[in-house]
Write a protein that binds this DNA or RNA. Structure first.
Lengths: 250, 250
DNA sequence: GTTGTTTTGTTCAAAAATAAACAAAATTTA
DNA sequence: TAAATTTTGTTTATTTTTGAACAAAACAAC
């Protein structure tokens, strides 16, 4: 009974029963609970089931195809708050860019019923909006498997073919002193490419990222027009940003 | 007991039992485990079985049918047979186009371990290959929600930027008299666009589609180079196709 | 709050499987 | 036939998987 066998049996059991617990599985698979746990962790990070305390649950089949490996759930409340604010900025008929950040991903749920067009390089965003009223346009190019997104030269060329009223983007780091920074060159250049083609750029940035710096500085603060963050940002940071002439919503 | 002979027995055993382990096979084939391993590696890279630790299993059992489990299951056996033949045509380093048909989708499982690049307009194909060794390139443009694929002008432009050795495509109808036909204008024009950029075009077409016609005739038979179908095709149909100068594999 | 129970994560050692290296056998080629 | 090449088997080292033990965390009951 190797991993592949166990995996198949686990998924099958979860699918049939809706949920299972570790003890049961260990018994069924004739193996230790420790091994079952390890299997469940692996299957959960692959998005094939939901891990629960003491077992696992079936994941709703509709949305699992591209789902982020639970990363999207990190600081979900703050991110949802930010996205709610962002959604209020959107008007019928808008054409908007959305990039591949985990915050931006959560914007999907708030725009499902809007009659707008979305241009994105994020596969999870596409998967999510596949069952919505939104018209979706996917940026083409090389697929970055880790980020579940499209990056590279062709992608940037593709972006240059479009023009949007608004863009909603994430960023890895932002500071008054150094501006915007990123963990990856790829993401930085997509951000730049989108900003060039957009009338009004919104930066969605949860408060934990304010005044942090990542290794790659790629643009001044003037790249964006509006910064949307949450209410847990420190008051002095907020006022400093406002004093620096930044339009900040929270 | 040579190489070819062993391979045949291994595949047969895997097919009958679903899965096997190395020890068992070494015993059955009267050879060493090392040799069995070497054989398994070879068969796995050819996509004919799925390598597991300690043995191997049927490809269809290993892929999580849960992921994009939609209508692709119709005539699954025939389609898998066709795809196995198709996979054998593919060589390391190839750049291949795959379109958004349900037959073509099933090719994914057979090419997971190949070191090739795939250019596709199909979202399920991308989802499937996201967890494979394959380099994936996604065609950009407007998302067709019903077909879970990208179509339209921008998509065709994007395709024109690439060049591939091989293309694997489906078609809705094919007949000696009228050539290729489709249910949708969108799909037809993507098919044409891909064919223009490809050295060798393979049509994957289960036998039920031979000698059928759909409403839109869009290309002569000369559009493709090789037709791959299953063994249930009528002998007289097959010979008629061959007589018409078509390269047909089944 | 505290206590007791359950579940989880971590570390470690044993077992299993694999890959690598090299020798032996079989096959092909000259 | 002999040399060259390929294929196979054996041994050894490396990697992966597993289960046990125990500490840490989460949860429930009080």
């Amino acid at each position: 009974m190797n991993f592949q066998h166990r995996k198949r049996l686990i998924l099958q059991t979860v699918d049939e029963r809706g949920s299972v617990d570790v003890r049961e599985l260990a018994d069924l698979l004739q193996t230790s609970e420790m091994t079952v746990r390890r299997d469940l962790v692996q299957l959960a990070t692959a998005g094939l089931l939901y891990r629960t305390r003491g077992g696992a649950m079936k994941v709703s089949l509709a949305t699992d195809s591209f789902r982020f490996a639970n990363k999207a759930a990190l600081n979900a409340d703050r991110k949802d708050y930010i996205c709610q604010l962002a959604a209020q900025e959107i008007q019928e008929g808008d054409v908007i860019f959305m990039d591949c950040g985990s915050t931006v991903f959560r914007l999907c749920q708030f725009i499902r019923n809007k009659r707008i067009a979305v241009v994105t390089n994020s596969l999870p965003v596409v998967a999510e909006l596949l069952t919505s009223d939104v018209t979706v346009n996917l940026v083409g190019g090389e697929v970055d498997k880790d980020r579940q997104a499209i990056h590279g030269l062709i992608a940037e060329e593709h972006i240059a073919r479009y023009r949007a009223n608004r863009a909603f983007m994430g960023v890895d780091g932002i500071s008054l002193e150094h501006g915007l920074s990123a963990n990856s060159e790829k993401e930085a250049s997509i951000t730049m490419a989108i900003a060039r083609q957009t009338d009004k750029v919104y930066l969605l940035c949860d408060s934990s990222k304010l005044e942090t710096n990542k290794y790659l500085y790629f643009a001044p603060l003037s790249l964006f027009d509006v910064l949307i963050t949450d209410t847990e940002a420190k008051p002095d940071v907020i006022s400093a940003y406002r004093k620096a002439g930044i339009t900040l919503i929270n």
